[in-house]
Nucleic acid binder design. Structure first.
Lengths: 214, 214
DNA sequence: GAAGCAATGTATCGGAGCGATATATCCAAG
DNA sequence: CTTGGATATATCGCTCCGATACATTGCTTC
């Protein structure tokens, strides 16, 4: 499967862990998972489901009439049924495998969020690895901004500069966020050491976005 | 031209205002403009240049040998020349038009940065309009996050929640940034009132990302 | 002075993914 | 009883991106 859809694969497999879902609900969860905006298209989801089906990681299960209403009249003809997708045993294994040793780049922009969302089902070592990978990725980017701003010192143009200043600041905040998470993870690893399948540390409630300004 | 490339169109037209450039250099400037990362592909740039050419906004100008070395041996055959793209008169008009009355959605994620980058060549009224549009867009998104977090209060999962908390905080910062810019713009409009083609206000140097922590 | 190699430069192709759209069912309001 | 919205499945065209191929400098390093 393609360059980006492997992250979709992970997300779908992850969401189906809990229980079987149909496409529509799956899409809603998917969109909620990564932030309530940036909608995922059905033109992406359904082909992905098909390929997961073909790979044998999920299977379809009709759900028009299993609890309650016995098929009222004719079981034949049209009657478009809901299709509930469920994980197969192989699918569960696949998810564990994806989550335990992340591909070449779990710290890229689109992938990181999904991996993070499933941290509860990821072992502590891998969590740390992904967080640190993400941090260096962002540190590179921060360095890129610094270089770029330094280069354009003279040829400076006010608004462009402001844009870059803001970009740099954002990346910088992101790095600090990751550093805090990493510290939390490490502290939690200390107190209760490399013991397989341990509980995730909760990253401290944090004082909130400081909401009374403006 | 397609859904996304119209922002590319604006960017290219804007960059060529200063002087003619060839594709390679254009790509570098483009990438620097939006942030030093997220590279733009030639597979996007060249088709765009072609369509701009077809529309008559730009024209090609050979630049292999105008200052110095007279064509040494044979002017025939291979000899691949640099192609410098320059704006036509229509191209300049087109840019002004794009910049003065922004399309249906100059405040969307990908478009906003480019429009902002060319604020120096945008009149004060339009600047304010775009900044405010962007802000409401982000306020909607913030509201989306709030809703989403509230909904998943019970079914809460630590890491997912943390991800959303961080997302909300980021959007919130973005909104504050825009509010500051808007205030600055407005103040500057006061002191030197609606007079066509006025100088842009510089948005205050700002104390910087506060760099000694950790 | 040529061999190696990084940067500059132009160009295309396959395919992933998105927006738009078509279709169909259910249910509540009017 | 019909309008309309939420739920639900599905496909198609088109855009854009990553990969790749190519050619030309210009530089170091023997």
């Amino acid at each position: 499967m393609g360059r980006r859809s492997d992250v979709l694969e992970l997300a779908v497999l992850g969401l189906l862990q809990e229980s079987g879902l149909h496409g529509y609900e799956l899409r809603k969860r998917l969109n909620a998972l990564l932030g309530p905006f940036r909608a995922l298209s059905y033109g992406t989801l359904y082909p992905c489901l098909k390929s997961l089906l073909a790979a044998g990681w999920i299977h379809e299960a009709g759900a028009g009439n299993e609890a309650g209403t016995a098929t009222p009249a004719s079981p034949l003809a049209g009657r478009r049924a809901k299709i509930v997708y469920e994980l197969t045993a192989e699918g569960k294994e696949r998810f564990q495998s994806l989550v335990s040793h992340p591909g070449p780049a779990a710290w890229e922009d689109e992938r990181f969020d999904v991996h993070f969302a499933f941290f509860a089902r990821t072992d502590a070592g891998t969590r740390l690895q992904i967080l640190e990978g993400r941090r260096s990725r962002l540190e590179e980017r921060r360095e890129g901004y610094r270089q770029s701003m330094h280069r354009s010192r003279e040829r400076a143009e006010q608004y462009t500069l402001e844009l870059q200043r803001h970009g740099l600041e954002s990346v910088d905040r992101e790095v600090r966020w990751l550093s805090e998470l990493i510290d939390t993870e490490r502290a939690s690893n200390m107190t209760h050491p490399p013991h397989d399948g341990d509980r995730p540390p909760l990253p401290a409630p944090a004082p909130g976005p400081d909401h009374e300004s403006r």
